[in-house]
């Protein structure tokens, strides 16, 4: 990553720290993101993954430096949305904001049948359909970076892989950069180029393929627990 020229970098973060209610959430983290790549962000609950996204979107006060490349346009998919009580249709939702493409085109991008889904209420969609609609909303302004906070949150296991396949296709055809929060090592291996493992500070940053190495896994998850050790303690 150190050989990357500035022109190839879409994001440079150095010594980024975030405190919430006087508690350190992120401590001096530094990394870069290359244009057109997918960076997976992995870590336990409370590791600061979503906080990192909120800092990258300037939604939170933070210390340190963070520089997006010129003409960067970000599309964001949050982990949680409140749609169950709001009687808003998919068409109405996709029409919020200054949109460059129409709702039908956006739904085609995420491989949803526009004629079947446009007039449905957002709150009655399946988990997979809702996540795709949220991704369509993020794509509708034609961004060159997508920030996806657990994009398969609330999606059944069988529907997760098609969403990542779809995202991979969008990344290649539209040449966009993806930053992706996930808990799934399989997704890291199959659909990301780089991995940032967080636990308040960075525990690993490098190529995703390295997650197969036991030393990398130890860096991310700590020392493995030995079965014999537990037995001897009993």
């Amino acid at each position: 990553m150190g050989e990357t020229s500035n022109e190839e970098q879409i994001l440079t973060v150095s010594d980024l720290s975030v405190e919430l209610q006087n508690q350190p959430i992120l401590d001096k983290i530094s990394f870069i993101v290359k244009k057109g790549t997918t960076l997976a962000i992995l870590g336990p609950n409370g590791a600061g993954k979503s906080v990192l996204f909120r800092a990258l979107l300037n939604l939170l006060p933070h210390k340190g430096n963070m520089k997006w490349a010129d003409k960067t346009k970000i599309g964001y998919v949050p982990q949680n949305v409140a749609v169950s009580d709001i009687p808003i249709s998919v068409r109405e939702f996709l029409s919020i904001g200054k949109n460059k493409c129409n709702p039908e085109e956006a739904l085609n991008l995420v491989r949803l049948n526009a004629s079947k889904i446009l007039d449905k209420r957002l709150g009655i969609l399946s988990g997979g359909e809702l996540r795709r609609v949220l991704i369509a909303w993020a794509l509708i302004d034609d961004p060159n970076v997508l920030l996806l906070d657990e994009p398969t949150n609330g999606v059944d296991v069988g529907s997760e892989e098609p969403i990542f396949l779809m995202l991979d296709g969008i990344k290649k055809t539209r040449k966009i950069t993806i930053l992706l929060i996930t808990h799934d090592i399989h997704i890291v291996q199959e659909y990301s180029d780089y991995l940032l493992a967080l636990n308040k500070c960075i525990t690993f940053f490098g190529k995703s393929a390295e997650i197969a190495n036991i030393t990398t896994q130890q860096a991310i998850y700590g020392e493995p627990v030995c079965v014999e050790t537990i037995k001897s303690e009993e």
């Binding site: 979107l57 939604l59 964001y76 949680n80 949305v81 709001i86 808003i88 904001g97």
Partner: peptide, 17 residues
């Protein structure tokens, strides 16, 4: 209207826009 609806769905989403 649209700002309010978006903020109801997700404040972060609204602020990011």
């Amino acid at each position: 209207y649209k700002k309010l609806v978006l903020a109801m769905i997700s404040e972060d989403l609204a602020i990011s826009k």
